[in-house]
Every structure is written in C-alpha cells, then in structure tokens.
Design a protein around this nucleic acid. Structure first.
Lengths: 191, 191
DNA sequence: GTCTATACGAAGATAGAC
DNA sequence: GTCTATCTTCGTATAGAC
C-alpha cells in the first residue's frame, strides 16, 4: 500500500523542522511559509485552521514516524535485546543523532498545549507504553517495567536537552547507550 | 552582608516565572509587565536594553540561585552523601518539586541564544562541574566522575521535561531519588 | 519611577485576482 | 493552489507628562 505524498504532506514535513528548531511560539507563519517554499497565504489552503492546524499536523507526523521507527521495532520479532537495538537505531534516525530537539518539550508550553491539546502528553505516553512492553517481554514485573520505561524516557529527553545546551551530540549518544541496561538488565531475574 | 532587594531585583524575580512558563519567545512584554505589576513602559526603566536585557537578568538570577541552593551545598563540609542530600533538597526547592521547567531548555532555542549568548551553555556547565566535584570527592576517577555528572544532569533535565509533559511530578521526584546511586555508588571502590 | 500616548513593524488571518 | 493586497491585533520600543 504505497501512497504518493500529497502536497500537504510535503508541507507538513517541511514545516516540522521549524517547530522543532524554534518551538511553537517561535514558529511564525513567515518562517513556516519560507520553509515550505510558499507564500504566507498559501499555507492556509493546506491548513485552514491556521497555526494550530499546522502544529497538530506536525504532531501527527511525529507520532507516526516515532511509531514506525521506534515503537514498531520494539514489538516485532526477535529477542528483547535485538528489538531494542533496532529501536535505538530508529531513535538515532528520528532525532538525527541528537541534532533534533523533541516536540514533547516544545509542545508542553501553555500556548502550544492550548493549540494542540494532548499532543505532548500523547507522544510521551506512547513512548512510555512502547518501552514498558519491551521491559515486560524481557521479564520485568509490571511495576518494574513501568519504572524502567519512565527512566528510559527521562534519559532520552534529558539527553536531547543537555546535548543541545552543551552542543555535544555525544551526550545523546551516551544516553542511548544506557537504554539496554535500563530496560533489559534485571537485577533479580528469577524473582 | 545583607543587601536590601532593589526594585529591579523584585522585577527580575517576578518576570522569571514568565520566562520559565512560556519560554523566551512566549514571554511577551505584556506578560512580563503584568507579572511585574508594572506598565509595559516601566519595564524599560529597569531593563534599558529591552527583552534581551530581561532574559539575561533572569539567567543571572537563576545561575545565582542554582549556585546557592545546589552547587554550594555540594562543596560544603560533610560526607558526599550528606552534601548530595542537601543539594537534592536545594533542587526540589529550585524546581519547586518539578513544577518549574528549566531555563537551560528554554534558553537553548535560537532566538534566546541570540539574545543571551552562552546562558544555557553556562548553566549546564556549572551544574556539570558541581556534580563532577562531588563524584570526585566520593572517590570516582576523573573520567568516571565526568560521566556520572553528565548522567546526573541528563536525569534532572529529562525528569523535568517528562514531568511536565505527563503532568506528574512523581517523575521528577523519582529522578532526584536516582541521583545518589548515579553520583555516589562506585561499582569498584578499590580500583 | 511610573504612567499615557504613540509609533512601527511583525504576526495571524482573510479576500479575491489569476 | 498560489499569489498580492489588505486587515487587525499584538509585540517591541520610545517620548514625554506627572
């Protein structure tokens, strides 16, 4: 089921980078239009509800991509370690090795929450659920799996923030490298 | 050496919350003025250079407070565990138990970086240096201490982000609770 | 120091020509 | 679908009265 990209989908992909780089408030219509190689007005043909519409579309795209690159591999066949390895490769791609900042963060400010209610919350919960599933299938008990998933998500988000603040992608890479021990290493496997 | 708070210092404390809640771009002069209980114009008496001036002042205040509440306790007398305990109490206070988002994050977007160059970077480095010192005095070797400090900062920032996105302060509290094992537990103490 | 008034451009959005 | 033109509101900033 290959679907040809619509013009709107092209626009969403183009403007996503602006929200990523500048945050919701910093993503002005002018910047968005320039990124999409369109006039300001032309954007409103693709997004009749204006900026909230654009932000919601970007959030949807990000959720889709995250699902495809990270969540799906976690639920595929293979040992937990192999599945996590594929998800980590997906994370590197999704975040461009730490160069991307995360929408969860940018979409958590009040004005963005008002425009796209539940977007940040939903992305965070989706990631949490994916990691939790992996931890369970690695043998963790429910409560432990939940805690491990939370730690993994914290590690990921923190890695992105600190990486960007310090201008060192290695921080994000190091965070990725810690995921296996967080999600897979069970201190008392037999318990 | 008790110094009376100047009117300007009052204003800085008041507007800090706006930058914290809304980010650099979302902190409009109107919002800042309202938070400071002043007219828009009056703000320019205290901050002649306008918004960048305000942002820089807030960054300075945050750095001072962080130094006082978190870094200083790390360097005081007492065992490493006791010092970290005091720093963690300081962190709870500084971040209001996870209710605050961090300036490091908000000041890392391009427009904020342009307005207050080096602010985000400096705050991150200061935290890193403080944690590193503690790890060293707990017996970690230089390279290990550096890595541990980085992990601690990642944990902190990630905890704040995820806490805010999910609306659960427990995420931040859990992150704080992991700091001792990150900074103090040395797997091979004799090595 | 704080206010009112004001200027000026940017941001968000719409109408209508092509 | 995209453009030009236009509108309104907001954001930033200054001048000057009190």
């Amino acid at each position: 089921m290959l679907k040809r990209k619509s013009a709107r989908e092209d626009a969403v992909a183009a403007i996503a980078r602006v929200f990523l780089d500048h945050g919701y408030e910093g993503a002005s219509i002018s910047r968005l239009a320039e990124a999409a190689s369109l006039g300001r007005s032309s954007l409103y043909n693709h997004f009749p509800e204006g900026k909230p519409d654009m932000a919601a579309s970007v959030a949807d795209l990000a959720a889709d991509e995250f699902g495809r690159l990270v969540i799906a591999p976690l639920r595929e066949q293979g040992s937990p370690a192999v599945r996590l390895g594929r998800a980590i490769a997906g994370l590197e791609q999704f975040y461009h090795g730490g160069a991307n900042s995360c929408l969860i963060d940018h979409f958590s400010v009040p004005d963005a929450v008002e425009a796209t209610p539940g977007a940040a919350h939903g992305m965070a919960e989706a990631a949490l659920a994916g990691f939790e599933t992996l931890a369970v299938s690695a043998g963790a008990k429910p409560a432990s799996a939940r805690a491990r998933a939370e730690r993994a998500l914290v590690e990921l988000q923190g890695g992105l923030i600190v990486s960007r603040a310090l201008g060192r992608k290695s921080v994000f890479k190091n965070a990725l490298a810690r995921l296996p021990s967080i999600l897979l290493d069970l201190p008392d496997p037999g318990r």
